[in-house]
Computed example of a mutant assay.
Amino acid sequence: MTSAVSSERRPDLDWIRVGAFFLLILYHVGMFYVPWGFHVKSPHPVAALEPLMLITNPWRLTLLFLVSGAATRFMADKLSAGGLAKARTARLLPPLLFAVLVIVPPQTYYEIVEKLGYSGSVLDFYGKYVTASGHWRPDGEPLITPTYNHMWFVAYLFIYSLILAGLLKVGRGAVGRLEAGLERALSGWGLLVWPMVCLIVLRMTLFPIFDITHALVDDWYNHALSFGVFVFGFLTAKSQVLKAAFIRVRWPALILALLGYGAYVAIRMAYRGDEPAPDAVLLIARVAYGVDQWGAIAAILGFGAKHLTRGGPVLTYLTLGVFPFYIVHQTFIVVAGYHLARLDLPQGLEAAILIIGTFATCLLTYEIVRRVNLLRPLFGLKPTPPVRGVEVGGNRPEIA
């Protein structure tokens, strides 16, 4: 039987979401330096960063989609299916369109300047960007514009929310039964075993066929993974049974995550050159990836449920700031990284400037946006209704 639960939001999930986005910002700073593809790159790549980047690589975005599904559950229980679709559209679509037309274009501009030696004016670039007439091919691949770049997460979340609203329209009564079924299936060690098996199977079957593209129409491994955990988060958000189960398995989950990480990184480092890994080694790597992926997520959820039990004004402030931070962070990293690379600073100093500058820009943007009612919807914040001539804030963003 499904346990009774509070209708209030869970502070542990809010803290986890804030922490995950904090790591995401650091990860994107790392993308400027690690020898992987990115919009602009440091002229001095740091191969030693790869194992550090791989600490969060398997689970960071999967965790974000899971807690996004959980947050959607708290919204959905207060709204009709149509109301949920309308609320998610109002919250997610304006920032997405605004980012595509205003925030993201500098990323594309500096990418073609660096990779293609583009010398046209900014106005000339923007005209080609919005009309998809640039025909740019950095790295040999066509650069389709307008584009959403890092805002793919919001685009996918928007689509998933609408799909979920449609499912609730015809089957809201099944939510409780599905939740109870998950509680039974994931009892005991099932919470560690069955989600891990699902992630491993996806990695072994769909990933070799559909690499992650973020292009919406051909991203089927990513959809199966991200929408799957989004629905999982939705169904389990209010289950006290599963919350307690995550607490019980947190230490075994952490051990499994570390073992999976060690095996996966060892294989990645051993076959980082041109020589392809044998099929048997690839199989082990995919199993290790799934073990690390779910082990880390289960451990984070377990430790969070155990220790992150208090909310308060700091959490409210940070939770409200997550969406504005997310929207602007990558554009600053790309623009500042491009210019910093040409100053020939010591790399440690350069990285410190880039990290501090990114967070400072995010914070300044948030402080401005939350005070200007016209800007708030463009950054995922509800307009503040006037009360006796004074604007009051405090409404929570529900993007994640």
Results as ranks from 00 to 15, higher is better:
T2D: 08
V5R: 12
S6P: 02
S6L: 10
R10Y: 00
R10N: 12
L13D: 00
D14Y: 00
R17T: 06
G19M: 09
A20P: 05
L24I: 09
L24E: 03
L26K: 04
H28I: 06
V29S: 03
V29K: 03
P35N: 05
W36N: 06
F38H: 15
H39I: 03
H39S: 05
P45G: 08
V46M: 09
A47R: 08
A47T: 13
F65N: 01
M75D: 12
D77H: 08
L79M: 10
G83R: 02
A90F: 04
P95L: 13
L96I: 13
A99P: 00
P106D: 04
P106E: 02
P106V: 04
E114C: 07
E114I: 07
G120S: 03
L123F: 08
L123P: 01
K128S: 09
H135A: 11
W136V: 03
P142Q: 05
L143Y: 11
I144P: 01
T145M: 10
P146I: 09
H150N: 14
Y156K: 03
I159E: 02
S161H: 08
S161A: 14
L168V: 10
R172T: 10
R172G: 13
G181L: 08
L182Y: 10
S187E: 12
G188E: 00
L191T: 05
L192Q: 01
L192C: 02
P195R: 08
V197R: 04
L199S: 12
I200W: 01
V201M: 09
L202T: 10
L202S: 13
T205E: 05
F207E: 13
I212R: 14
H214G: 01
A215C: 02
L216C: 06
D219E: 05
W220D: 15
S226R: 11
F227Q: 03
F227D: 02
F230I: 04
F232S: 02
S239A: 04
S239W: 04
L242S: 13
L242K: 11
A244F: 00
A244K: 06
F246C: 10
I247H: 00
V249W: 04
P252Q: 06
L258F: 04
G260S: 11
A266V: 04
Y271L: 06
R272W: 07
G273K: 05
A285G: 09
A288G: 04
A288K: 07
Y289K: 06
G290R: 11
D292F: 04
G295Q: 03
G295Y: 06
L301H: 00
G302K: 00
G304M: 08
K306Q: 14
L308D: 11
R310T: 09
G311L: 01
P313F: 02
Y317W: 14
L318A: 11
L320P: 00
I327Y: 10
Q330Y: 12
Q330I: 09
Y338V: 09
R342L: 11
E350S: 15
A351N: 08
A351K: 15
I356W: 15
T358G: 01
T358V: 13
F359P: 10
A360F: 14
L364F: 14
T365D: 12
P377R: 14
L381E: 13
R388T: 06
E391C: 05
G394S: 09
I399F: 13
